[in-house]
Nucleic acid binder design. Structure first.
Lengths: 208, 208
DNA sequence: TCATCCAGTTAACAACTGTTCTCCAGAATG
DNA sequence: CATTCTGGAGAACAGTTGTTAACTGGATGA
C-alpha cells in the first residue's frame, strides 16, 4: 500500500513536522501554556497565519506532540516487559531501555513529564490516556507470568500502574543527569534498580 | 518575642499575601511560566509596579509559593510517619493525612505537582530541595524502626524517596477526584493503600 | 514637630500577542 | 488546456506584556 504522496501533501506534512519540532525545542525552557503561536511560526520561518492550516490552537499542537512522544513507544514497552529472563535481567533491560530513550529523545521525555500535570487540560488528558494504555499493556504482560497466579485483576492493574509510575519517575531522573558526568547516570541506574527490586520482592510475597 | 508589626509593615505583608493568593488562584488553569505580572496585580486590584516592591520577578514569587506550600508541612509528615501502630494503621493514617490536605489546600498541591517539572528552573529547584528534605526526614524516621536493622544508608534513602514519590502521586490522584463523587475518592484510597502495602511487604523481605 | 522613608500610583515606552480578511502562486483535477 | 483547490503570505486589528521614571501621601523616628 505504499502510495506516493502528492508533492502538495508532502510539503504540508513537512511544514507540520517543522512546527512540531520547533515547538518541542522551544518547550525545553517553558511550559506549553506559555508557548505562543507566533513564537513557533517565527522559529520555523513561516507566516503566523500558516499555523492555522495545521492546528486549531497551541493546545491542539500539544495533543499531537503527545501522540508523537508516546504513541510509538507501546511496542517497545511490550517487548521489553514480556521478554524472558530472571527478575534482575528484566529490571536491567527495562532501565536500559529508559536510559537509552532519554538519551535519544530528551525533549519528548521532558515534554511529557512537564505537561502531565501542566496547565493545558486537553494535553493532560491525552497523556493520562496514553499512560493508562501503557498500564493496561503492562498488566496484560504481567498476567502471562506464572507469578501472577491467584492475583486479583485490580491488584494486577495496581502493580502495572506502579511500574509505569516508576518508569516515568526514572526517566525524569535520567533527564536531570543529561549534562552531568557518567557517574551521576550510574547512580540513578543503581537507585532505580533497587526500587524495582524492592517492588519485585513485594510482588513475590503479596499473596498472604 | 511577640513584637507588634508597625502598621506599615503590616500593610506590606498584607499586600504580599494578596499577591501570593491571587497568583495561586490564577495558577489553577495555567502554568507559572505563562503567569503575567500584570495579571496578578490586576487580580489584587493594585498597580503593576507595586509588584516590584515584593518580588523581583514571577519566578521569585513562585519560589515563595513553594515555601508556603511545602514549608509548613514538615512537622505533619514527621509526626504522621513516626507515630506508632502496625503497618496498616500507619498506611491508613498517612493516606488520610494526604486526602485531608488535598481537600483543604487543593491549589497548593496542584501548584507543586504542576511546577515540579514545570518551565521555571528556580521553582523546580526549590521544589526538588523541599522534597529531598522530606525524604531525609522520612529516612530518619525509618531508621528508628526495628525493621530497619541491617539496612544500608543508601537503601533507607531509596525507600524514603519511594515513599515520598508515592505521597505526591497519591495527592495528585486525589486532586483529580475533587469534583467527583465520594466513591471515586474511596477507589483512590484503596489503590493507594495497596500500593503502600506492597512496598511495605517488599521492605519486610528486603534482606536476602 | 519636622524631615525622612517607602509602599503604592500614574504615565509612557516599545514589543509582543491571537485572529480576521484578502490575496497569490502553484499543484491538482478534468 | 482551463478550472478549481489550497498552503502560505501580507497587512491590519485591538489588546496585551514587562519595565522605566517621576511622583504622592501617610507612617516613622529623632
Amino acid at each position: 500500500m505504499s502510495h506516493t504522496l502528492g508533492i502538495r501533501q508532502a510539503q504540508k506534512q513537512k511544514t507540520r513536522q517543522a512546527l512540531l519540532d520547533a515547538a518541542l525545542g522551544l518547550l525545553e525552557e517553558q511550559s506549553l501554556s506559555s508557548l505562543g503561536l507566533r513564537e513557533v511560526t517565527r522559529a520555523v520561518g513561516v507566516a503566523p497565519t500558516a499555523f492555522y492550516r495545521h492546528f486549531r490552537s497551541i493546545a491542539d499542537l500539544g495533543v499531537a506532540l503527545v501522540d508523537e512522544a508516546l504513541g510509538s513507544l507501546h511496542p517497545m514497552v511490550r517487548t521489553t516487559v514480556s521478554a524472558a529472563g530472571d527478575g534482575d535481567e528484566r529490571i536491567a533491560r527495562a532501565i536500559g531501555l529508559i536510559a537509552r530513550h532519554v538519551q535519544t529523545h530528551p525533549a519528548h521525555v521532558r515534554f511529557v513529564a512537564r505537561e502531565r500535570h501542566g496547565g493545558v487540560q486537553p494535553v493532560r488528558e491525552a497523556i493520562r490516556d496514553q499512560l493508562a494504555r501503557f498500564a493496561e499493556e503492562v498488566k496484560a504482560e504481567l498476567a502471562e507470568d506464572p507469578e501472577a497466579a491467584g492475583w486479583h485483576d485490580d491488584d494486577l492493574l495496581m502493580l502495572a500502574h506502579l511500574y509505569v509510575d516508576q518508569m516515568i519517575s526514572t526517566a525524569s531522573l535520567f533527564l536531570e543527569t543529561l549534562e552531568a558526568p557518567d557517574a551521576e547516570r550510574e547512580r540513578v541506574t543503581q537507585a532505580a534498580t533497587r526500587r524495582l527490586r524492592l517492588i519485585g520482592i513485594g510482588r513475590l510475597h503479596w499473596r498472604d
